[in-house]
Simulated scan of single mutants.
Amino acid sequence: MMAHRTESTDAAGFLRLAEDIAREAGDMLLAKRPSMSTASGDIETKSSPTDVVTALDKASEQLIRARIQQARPGDRILGEEEGEAGGDSAVRWIVDPIDGTVNFLYGLPEWAVSIAVEVAGRIVAGVVNVVPRGEVFTAALGAGAHLKTAGLGVETLRCNTGVPLGRALVATGFGYAAGRRAVQGEVVAAVLPRVRDIRRGGSCAVDLCSVAAGRVDAYYERGVNRWDHAAAGLVASEAGARMGGLNGEPAGSGLVLCAAPGLFEELHDLLVPLDPERDA
């Protein structure tokens, strides 16, 4: 349990607190993960039979909320599992206690604890703790993006630049509803012949951090939520990538598109006529 409190309102102060909390939640999840299985009675479904939530998703969010409230009791908190609560502060914490729950459940490594801090509507700090890899991605507004890897120190992140669409490795994801998946299948079938290849990792936050780290060149997905991309979107942006939606819209549930300038526009123009924001 953390003993310190903070009243700092600067991005660096928020980032330190968010990182401490994300690491503690990650340690808890890693310790308790072996007790989970796909047959566990601690698993529920949400929007569809394929949209799962575990008891550890809930426990992680409860831990994160408790630590934020302990350090900054007046702040608001938006979390995936419990919604929004808190005071009238201009500061809002945006929390995904496990991004990539299905991966977590199956023992796959593409899952993360994601915590962002928003001040007056603008994300100023973000942490994505990819727990199984021992990787913590961090960013503060105007201060760049970094990767801290256990035993390897700190790396400054820059996304890949100068990559044309035909040589781009593109990450994407799929929703939970059958109708949405049908359309997403059509879209990816049209994108695949025009790019180097497609990757589907199963975590929006990890995919965006992969853009930041140059592990993929671009990412797009329909239907992600604010808590999925708030922290990782800042990491990607601070690493030089462009974040947005279609036709000048901001990144949101309609579509999140992320790539270096130039590739962003090429992928955007490929996606627009495919109408990826529709559902069957």
Score class of each variant (00 low, 15 high):
280 A>M: 06
201 G>S: 12
45 T>L: 00
56 L>V: 02
16 R>K: 12
121 G>P: 02
158 R>E: 10
115 I>P: 01
210 S>A: 14
26 G>T: 08
48 S>Y: 03
147 L>M: 06
65 R>T: 11
167 R>Y: 09
243 M>Q: 05
83 G>H: 01
229 H>C: 13
207 D>V: 11
158 R>I: 05
163 V>N: 07
253 S>D: 14
226 R>G: 05
241 A>R: 04
46 K>F: 12
259 A>D: 04
232 A>H: 02
119 V>Y: 03
124 V>E: 06
32 K>Y: 00
19 E>G: 13
257 L>A: 00
176 Y>P: 04
33 R>G: 05
15 L>E: 11
279 D>Q: 09
155 E>S: 10
230 A>E: 02
23 R>H: 14
38 T>G: 15
126 G>P: 04
29 L>D: 04
110 E>I: 15
182 A>D: 09
200 R>T: 07
99 D>T: 01
40 S>G: 10
191 V>G: 03
177 A>Q: 09
173 G>A: 02
43 I>N: 05
3 A>C: 10
278 R>M: 08
161 T>C: 09
2 M>R: 15
181 R>I: 11
65 R>C: 11
216 V>G: 09
227 W>V: 03
133 R>L: 15
92 R>N: 03
104 F>W: 01
161 T>A: 13
232 A>S: 10
225 N>K: 15
280 A>D: 13
23 R>I: 15
25 A>P: 12
116 A>Q: 04
